[in-house]
Simulated assay, not measured.
Amino acid sequence: MQNSLTLPDLLNDAAILSLEHQLHLETVVGDLNWHVDLAEPKFDFHGESELVCERFHLLGSAAPGPGSWLWAWANPSGFLPETIELAESVRDLGREYGVPELAEPEVPFAALPGSPEEPHQVLSLLTDAAKVLTGRFTAYNGPVGGGTRAAFLLEHPSFLLAEATPMHAVSLIQQAVSGVPYITDHRRAVYSYGRLRGLDPEFSADGRTLALKALGIGLEFDELNRLTRIEGSLTPDSI
C-alpha cells in the first residue's frame, strides 16, 4: 500500500470485494433479526435459527441530527476496549496515510465524497474504507434510535467466501461497476479485487488490459479507466 492515500482510493480498492461479502452475508442471515449487547459483548442474528458472531467490532455511528459520523473511539459514552480496538487501528492508519476522514473524531456528512445526506450512505463509505485497511470485509449496520445508525464489522466462519469462479467473478464485477456509485476508477477497483481475492492480477505492458490469471479472465479499460470489455471462457463448468 502506498504511503499517501485518499478516501476515494480506499473506496475503489474495497468496493468489489465488499459487495461480494455483503451479498454473501444476505444469503447467510436472510431474514434473521440482529441484536447487539455492547456490555457483554455479544452480536447475534436470531429468528428461526441463531448465529452468534465470534467477534464483532464497533466502528462508529452516523446521526442525521448533527449530520455527522462519530468514530467509536471518540464516542463520549465509552465502550469496551475489545469492541473499538479495530476502529482505533483504522484511526492510526488514517493518520499514517494522511486520510483525515479516518483520523478525525467526527466527520460531517458534507465532507465525504458525493456529500451524502442519509446515515446509511455515510456508513457505506466509511465502513468500506475500514474494511480494506483491516482485512475484515463483512459489515452490518442497524438503527440505534433517533435515525442514527451504527456500523459493525463481523467475524464468523459462515461469512467466509467460497472459492471464486469465472462466471461468478464476471457477474460480480459487472454488478459492481454499474451499481456501486463510489467506484470512480474501474481499473483500480478491478485490480484491487483481483489482488485481495488472490486471483493473480497482471496488467499488460501498456496498462490497458488486466488478466485475472487464476480465472482465465481478461478485462480491457479505456483512457478514463472505465471497464469496456471482459472476455474469457465462461462455460457451465466455470459457474
Rank of each mutant, 00 (worst) to 15 (best):
L161D: 09
F56I: 08
P76M: 12
S238R: 10
S192Y: 00
W34F: 09
Y193N: 02
T228N: 03
E40F: 04
S238F: 01
G207A: 02
P201R: 06
H21K: 14
F159T: 11
D9Q: 01
D200Y: 05
R226F: 00
F109P: 08
P41K: 03
G65Y: 02
E220N: 14
H168G: 03
A169R: 10
I183G: 04
P108F: 04
S238T: 13
N12P: 05
L70W: 00
S4F: 12
G135A: 10
A129K: 01
E50G: 13
F56H: 13
H120E: 15
I173R: 04
G179K: 15
N33E: 14
T27V: 02
E20W: 06
D31M: 10
S49Y: 14
P66I: 01
T83Q: 09
V190R: 03
S115L: 03
V190Q: 00
G145M: 02
R91N: 11
T127R: 05
A111R: 00
N3K: 13
G147W: 07
S18L: 12
V177W: 02
G218W: 11
T138E: 10
V180L: 15
L25C: 11
A164P: 02
R197D: 03
M167P: 02
W71G: 01
E231A: 01
Q174N: 15
I230N: 09
F79W: 09
A110V: 01
R195S: 09
G67F: 01
I84Y: 03
W69M: 04
L160E: 15
L23E: 14
V36H: 07
F221Y: 09
T127A: 07
N225V: 01
T235S: 14
D237I: 00
L153M: 13
G60P: 05
S192H: 04
A176Y: 05
D37I: 00
I217L: 12
L196W: 00
A150V: 08
A103N: 04
